[in-house]
Design a binder for these strands. Structure first.
Lengths: 261, 261
DNA sequence: CATAACCTTGTACGGCGTACAACGTAGGAT
DNA sequence: ATCCTACGTTGTACGCCGTACAAGGTTATG
């Protein structure tokens, strides 16, 4: 399989190199391989996406998978781009930027809830895929009305999407949750002994029983809190066209975000 | 090795169960195992931390590692907590909250730059470790002066630290960078063909040659932009003492009953 | 019809985490 | 002083993983 990742990503584009017509047709398309991998990942997590299991799901020998994909790393990139390509990118219409950004954030959260394994795919080359680029273009448009230069606009979008990723990570249900809960039942007493009177602030603010401390007490609340912070802060950034922090404290009360939603 | 993770995490605490005195002393301490693992991870990445290589580094048989650690999963938790425990947590003194939060953010960024593998350790049980709890307590204090209730304070800290994690992830140098650069040299022309006149916004704002598109054009700029946004937005949150967005009251009543530690 | 290009497949290699059992070693009980 | 028992150490082995490689089958092209 000599086709390069860039060509695999753009395999549906008219200019993409079609394979020669010689030899038998492959019994499965590259797209089908990627789709099957995504289905597998949705159902059982990314760890279940092994070349062997993928071949099994496709009724194909293990090594035949390599006819369509150069290796597992490339497969993950194709999977991620396929998911992005599948997003609906509704026109922003005449909605204000606040609404636009909120919708972008909510769409991305939904995406990560539906495909939690996306959080584990961390390959820069995903950025070259058609789905990823279309998504990027669409989401940049959400910031059209903000007076940000290109670099700041990119930074702003990164800021929003990184927040969403973190929120999605906090929200996702750990498949080992039951097991951890059992451990916690055994550990609670001992941890209390260890802590004693120390770290009172952490103990007061920190975890409810059975819940990890650094997991937000309520993911839903953390989402609302964080999203409100993100939107408010972009409001302020709009006051400073370069996107750079101004000397604050002076003009703090001067301006507050007014355009709610 | 029947000692549970919670006891391993707190192994230096006076109340921690000491192993019986029978039998030969182990030739290596648990702390040494964890330290060696961290050194290995710093030098060659988390993937290099295998039980076999760890034993080799400690001049111990592979299986002897399991004398000190129940498995690789537990080891990662111990590693992360050890790094957190090693952070210096300087008193906040009489610095304002903005300075405090900035220092917290910078300290965490430095931590992730020094130990990039921390980003790959994602185990809720880390939260039960002494280093993690001490860090949590210290960082909560940075928000002392802000009029946030406990839940909002936790959300605010999560908000800050999640931003830092994302920035650190963007900043870290991909070990395959050279390889990707080579690919890019081969791909640039083809990608231009595929893109054509499409996605003009993405093409203008997006990547400079050889750079992944969703990587911030300048990590340094993204850091300053984001940190300024975070600080500004906390300023606004302080104006609304509950830390809750003013206008969306719908689904907020659902707050979990918490039994504090 | 021969050839070259292509797909498919089985085998095999070197890695991984770790279960298990055999063995050695030292303190506590007698 | 001796036995017992708890514990540390170790080698082997199992079932996974990704994938290199080569042999064989299948098809359009010369």
């Amino acid at each position: 399989m000599p086709r390069e990742l860039i060509d695999l990503l753009w395999r549906d584009h008219p200019a993409a190199p079609r394979g020669g017509t010689r030899g038998p047709r492959s019994r499965v398309t590259t797209g089908a391989v990627v789709d099957a991998a995504c289905t597998l990942a949705d159902a059982e997590g990314l760890a279940a996406v092994t070349v062997r299991r993928l071949g099994e799901a496709l009724r194909i020998s293990t090594m035949s998978v390599y006819t369509h994909v150069n290796g597992r790393d490339d497969l993950l990139v194709l999977m991620a781009d396929a998911i992005y390509a599948g997003m609906s990118l509704p026109a922003h219409g005449n909605a204000g930027w606040r609404t636009r950004v909120r919708r972008v954030a909510e769409a991305n959260l939904a995406l990560h809830v539906e495909h939690p394994w996306l959080l584990e795919v961390d390959d820069e080359r995903t950025a070259f895929g058609p789905g990823t680029i279309a998504k990027y273009d669409h989401e940049l448009q959400a910031l059209d009305q903000l007076p940000l230069d290109d670099v700041a606009r990119d930074a702003a979008l990164t800021f929003v999407l990184d927040f969403v990723r973190a929120a999605a990570r906090a929200r996702r249900r750990d498949p080992r949750a039951d097991e951890i809960a059992q451990s916690w039942a055994r550990w609670a007493g001992r941890l209390a002994k260890y802590l004693g009177d120390g770290y009172p602030l952490a103990q007061r603010v920190g975890g409810a029983a059975g819940q990890a401390m650094n997991a937000p007490l309520s993911p839903a609340h953390a989402w609302e809190f964080g999203l409100a912070r993100v939107l408010d802060s972009l409001d302020l950034a709009a006051d400073r066209p370069t996107g750079r922090p101004a000397d604050r404290s002076a003009d703090r009360a001067r301006k507050k975000p007014v355009s709610r939603l």
